[in-house]
Computed example of a mutant assay.
Amino acid sequence: MHAHHGHEHGHSHQAPASFGKAFVIAISLNVGFTVVEFIYGFLAQSSALMADAGHNLSDVLGLVVAWAGVLLARKIPDQRFTYGLRGSSILAALANAMFLMIACGAISWDAIRRLADPPEVSSMTVIVVASIGILVNTASAWLFVKGSKDDLNIRGAFLHLAADAAVSLGVVIAGVAILLTGWNWLDPVVSLLIVVVIVIGTWGLLRESLKLALNAVPAHIDLDEVEAWLRDQPGVLDIHDLHVWGMSTTESALTAHLVMPNGADDAFVDGVADELHHRFRIEHATLQVERGDSEHVCVLHR
């Protein structure tokens, strides 16, 4: 027996929010700022500024990938892709995390190279351009605050932009310090600190998206709690073959075999599916009711 929350034995799926306007604004702002920041970073001989521009470029690509993931996830299921392309948002989140890790390697290499022979830095240019970066990235991140709470893909976009705002603040601080002390080596050192901030902020995204790509139980669901609740339902003698995974970065699915000697009607199955949605945010539940006349062994556990 199959039940999907909100539709009795139906297979309609509500499309996830697209955040189209937010992506267009954020991408436009960051493309413009990335060009300006790289040009002035090159003119000012600031590795921190160019490193931040490189990171911003990776964020632009990341925003494009995240948006593509959202749009693909809205594709209606068909005969080939019976869940639609909802898993695209998981792949987008994973790609975003990998994008950032690669960017970290490039930034580190350039910073270490410049640390050996620090160039003269135009501190005032660095301060002004990075200050603009704080405004651009803060405004862009704000567009994704709401969606970041429940969607790992959108959270990835938000975290990148929020980290950029913090990184730009670090560049401003470095510019002020160089202006006051004349210590040009502070510029590549700040670049390396930027890398540390990015890696720390990206690690959680990489870990969570990789787990979802491997069909792990979503982080917000306690599998033991779900099993205990199912076992506690009236008429349920036993439960086996319980599986929960993420169909996308916002939706979860469940399959389970319920051993019920007296059987169950459609109303029971629909009620359980509805409660799974409200209690555990599991949108798509497929329940197989068995009377327990024979032993059923999950092929995964053989």
Score class of each variant (00 low, 15 high):
residue 213 A to Y: 05
residue 153 N to H: 09
residue 125 T to D: 04
residue 62 G to L: 03
residue 207 R to S: 14
residue 39 I to T: 12
residue 156 G to W: 03
residue 205 L to R: 09
residue 35 V to R: 09
residue 152 L to F: 06
residue 151 D to T: 11
residue 17 A to R: 09
residue 295 E to Q: 10
residue 171 V to Y: 03
residue 189 V to G: 11
residue 89 S to E: 06
residue 297 V to A: 12
residue 102 I to W: 06
residue 277 H to S: 04
residue 259 V to P: 03
residue 248 S to Y: 00
residue 80 R to I: 07
residue 151 D to Q: 11
residue 300 L to G: 15
residue 112 I to F: 15
residue 71 L to Q: 13
residue 148 S to H: 10
residue 26 A to G: 08
residue 1 M to P: 00
residue 268 F to R: 00
residue 30 N to G: 01
residue 203 W to M: 12
residue 72 L to E: 07
residue 122 S to A: 12
residue 139 A to G: 01
residue 12 S to D: 15
residue 224 D to H: 01
residue 105 G to R: 01
residue 207 R to D: 06
residue 197 V to K: 03
residue 174 A to S: 14
residue 130 A to E: 04
residue 149 K to V: 11
residue 246 G to C: 00
residue 37 E to G: 14
residue 35 V to P: 12
residue 254 L to V: 00
residue 36 V to N: 05
residue 2 H to Y: 03
residue 113 R to Q: 15
residue 9 H to K: 08
residue 134 I to G: 13
residue 184 N to S: 15
residue 280 F to P: 06
residue 16 P to V: 12
residue 141 A to S: 13
residue 288 Q to G: 08
residue 88 S to G: 12
residue 249 T to C: 09
residue 86 R to I: 01
residue 111 A to E: 09
residue 47 S to Q: 14
residue 169 L to H: 08
residue 196 V to E: 06
residue 41 G to Q: 04
residue 3 A to Y: 04
residue 54 G to A: 08
residue 228 A to F: 00
residue 40 Y to R: 03
residue 54 G to W: 10
residue 271 G to I: 00
residue 126 V to M: 15
residue 127 I to N: 05
residue 76 I to D: 15
residue 75 K to D: 02
residue 186 L to V: 15
residue 150 D to Y: 06
residue 96 N to L: 09
residue 11 H to V: 08
residue 24 V to E: 12
residue 298 C to Q: 03
residue 98 M to K: 02
residue 154 I to D: 08
residue 152 L to Y: 13
residue 302 R to K: 12
residue 57 L to H: 10
residue 292 G to E: 08
residue 222 D to I: 00
residue 254 L to N: 01
residue 100 L to Q: 13
residue 108 S to K: 01
residue 43 L to M: 11
residue 226 V to A: 02
residue 223 L to A: 04
residue 151 D to H: 07
residue 134 I to F: 09
residue 257 H to N: 02
residue 278 H to Y: 11
residue 6 G to K: 02
residue 33 F to C: 05
residue 262 N to D: 13
residue 201 G to K: 02
residue 118 P to A: 07
residue 160 H to N: 14
residue 276 L to F: 04
residue 124 M to F: 06
residue 163 A to D: 13
residue 289 V to W: 06
residue 47 S to R: 08
residue 202 T to D: 10
residue 174 A to R: 00
residue 27 I to H: 05
residue 146 K to W: 07
residue 1 M to F: 12
residue 193 L to H: 05
residue 17 A to Q: 07
residue 80 R to V: 14
residue 63 L to M: 11
residue 301 H to A: 14
residue 249 T to K: 02
residue 28 S to L: 09
residue 46 S to R: 02
residue 121 V to K: 04
residue 128 V to C: 03
residue 179 L to F: 10
residue 7 H to C: 14
residue 193 L to N: 07
residue 206 L to V: 01
residue 115 L to V: 05
residue 41 G to A: 10
residue 78 D to Q: 07
residue 201 G to W: 02
residue 13 H to W: 04
residue 198 I to C: 08
residue 210 L to R: 03
residue 59 D to W: 04
residue 7 H to D: 09
